[in-house]
Design a protein around this nucleic acid. Structure first.
Lengths: 324, 324
DNA sequence: TGCATTAATAAACTGCACTTATCAATGCAA
DNA sequence: TTGCATTGATAAGTGCAGTTTATTAATGCA
């Protein structure tokens, strides 16, 4: 008994329209084709569903009994299909993403808030982690994708450049560093420096950039958290070198930033995905939004992705997070 | 989006067996055919369901989300199909039947009781009515079929002979009628007769048989109910002519019956159905039982369908009746 | 009685789903 | 690393199910 959805639809059409010819037209098939379909259905279930002659078509008792069964079946099927269609048409589900702390605290919340405003059925699970952990979480499928630093070259992972995050010199407003004609490595290294901890990707980049310029970064102070580094700068302990995108360097009237005149002080922020792994449409959609946001602010001057975190950003994030 | 059941079954098979080759074998199709089915499904819903290469097949996030939807869908479908199959395999439903009173009170209860014992999901609605009402009820679809007297010749009704119900002479045991060498019409009409009311089919038959024998039936007494007629016979008011199948003439030691030696005293009991109208399988089944019962007792001597009404017959009838 | 309508049937055709054969990628063992 | 075995994808060919057109038969109605 291999009953077919087309047979069931044919049955319901004949019932609904009260005739084979009309039903066939509604189904966009010829009347003989419909006759055969109905006969097949009847043969397969072993029961006559219609008593028909050339002048009248009417349900048998059996047909009457089975009609609601078939109706419910098609209703269930169609609603399930509608459900499935929504999946591809309206992004939904939970997006799990691992992000560098600086990015998580920086532009991301606003982007998520915006995305969720347009796609209310999408929720987020955000995991902030250092570069290596981001890679690991993507690989383990703990997250759908990651946002990390570039230079990854693993065979099972794909990366997409999002934007270039410049490291900038952070100094107290009025400090001599602001007046320098050139902020190159040799010049910078004249000043006491507040550098990030050795484990951070920022520090690694700084060290590499100094090395590239034939110098060695020597900290006057070290900090693990960027906000600590900023406080040290404000206290006059030295100059810091921090990502331009970092939220920690904003909102203080007494500090200023300037680009460093050295190509080494740039890190590529990339989206990291498992190679050959399909993601939720919502994830694809969100990465597009990320790239679009990066491109649109790359076209404008000033630090990239310099998004003000509005009221509601953090709130939306909280609402969107689902427990694991 | 014309997703069909074979695609869904294919999807579930791949999930369940974890590979295309194994799933294809389970579905009794070739592996390329399965590959195509899955691709069709994915194309139609616009979503990739498996991430697959030659060494591994695993559900995408979307596939994981849709798996329970498809599972529920197939479960619902299969259980509905099982339901439908039961319809043809195990008789069920309500059989509505219009029956001549003599038959309804006679052999029918035992047959119904027996049928219900073997088909507990079948219930009966029994309507006893005179011949004309039986025909009308069949035609109006008030009942699924009728049991009436033969000789019906209506274009929209079909009849099937069940058995021949002889009218017999009912006389007090010891009465001279029992000793007669011949019980022909002329002989019978010598005695006072207890005849049924003019409206009954029995009386009509008696009148016709007498007319056929060139005589006229003249009642000494008339009765509407057979049991009344029997009482009259027992009281010595005359001889009655009643159906051999009538339950009313049994169970009394003081009366006896004998066939009447005239071919006219026979009525054909027939099943009456609407022409070209399909019935519940249970009804078809039951009519078969009726015919079988008639045939089996036709093979044995004595009055046909001479079924003793066991205890339980009437009870089963009551249980089976459903209110309308 | 003829006409119009409608489902069933016949015959021919079309296309889809299937099969076999083959390829390419991947993991594993030596 | 190399060769082998496994597995999914692809290509080409085939058969049949389902379709269409044309026709028939039955039925209700004027």
């Amino acid at each position: 008994m291999d009953v077919n959805l087309r047979q069931i639809r044919a049955f319901l059409a004949v019932v609904g329209l009260g005739g084979f010819t009309r039903a066939a037209a509604a189904l966009n098939i010829s009347q003989p084709a419909l006759t055969i379909r109905i006969r097949q259905l009847e043969d397969q279930i072993g029961l006559r569903l219609f008593d028909r002659n050339t002048r009248s078509v009417q349900l048998t008792r059996v047909g009457q009994e089975l009609l609601p069964v078939f109706q419910r079946l098609m209703k269930d099927f169609d609603s399930a299909m509608a459900d499935i269609r929504e999946f591809s048409e309206e992004p939904r589900g939970t997006i799990r993403v691992a992000v560098l702390p600086s990015f998580a605290a920086g532009p991301l919340p606003a982007l998520i808030a915006d995305f969720r405003a347009r796609n209310p059925r999408v929720s987020f699970v955000l995991k902030d982690a250092v570069g290596k952990r981001v890679l690991a979480m993507v690989r383990n499928e703990e997250v759908d994708f990651g946002i990390g630093v570039g230079g990854v070259d693993e065979p099972d992972l794909d990366t997409i450049d999002v934007f270039e995050d410049r490291l900038v010199l952070v100094y107290p407003r009025g400090h001599a560093a602001g007046e320098l004609p050139l902020a190159s490595v040799p010049v910078i290294s004249q000043f006491p420096l507040v550098l990030m901890d050795k484990d951070t990707s920022v520090r690694r980049l700084v060290d590499e950039a100094f090395a590239g310029a034939g110098s060695i970064a020597t900290p006057a102070c070290e900090a693990t958290y960027m906000s600590t580094a900023v406080s040290m700068v404000r206290a006059g302990l030295g100059l810091a070198i921090l990502p331009a995108s970092a939220i920690e360097i904003r909102g203080f009237a007494d500090i200023a930033t300037r680009p460093i005149d050295d190509a080494g002080f740039v890190r590529r922020i990339v989206i990291i995905k498992r190679r050959g792994s399909s993601l939720l449409p919502a994830v694809e959609e969100f990465t597009k939004v990320l790239l679009a946001a990066a491109n649109s602010c790359a076209a404008t001057p000033g630090p990239c992705l310099d998004v003000e975190v509005q009221d509601g950003g953090a709130e939306a994030l909280a609402v969107g997070v689902q427990g694991q």
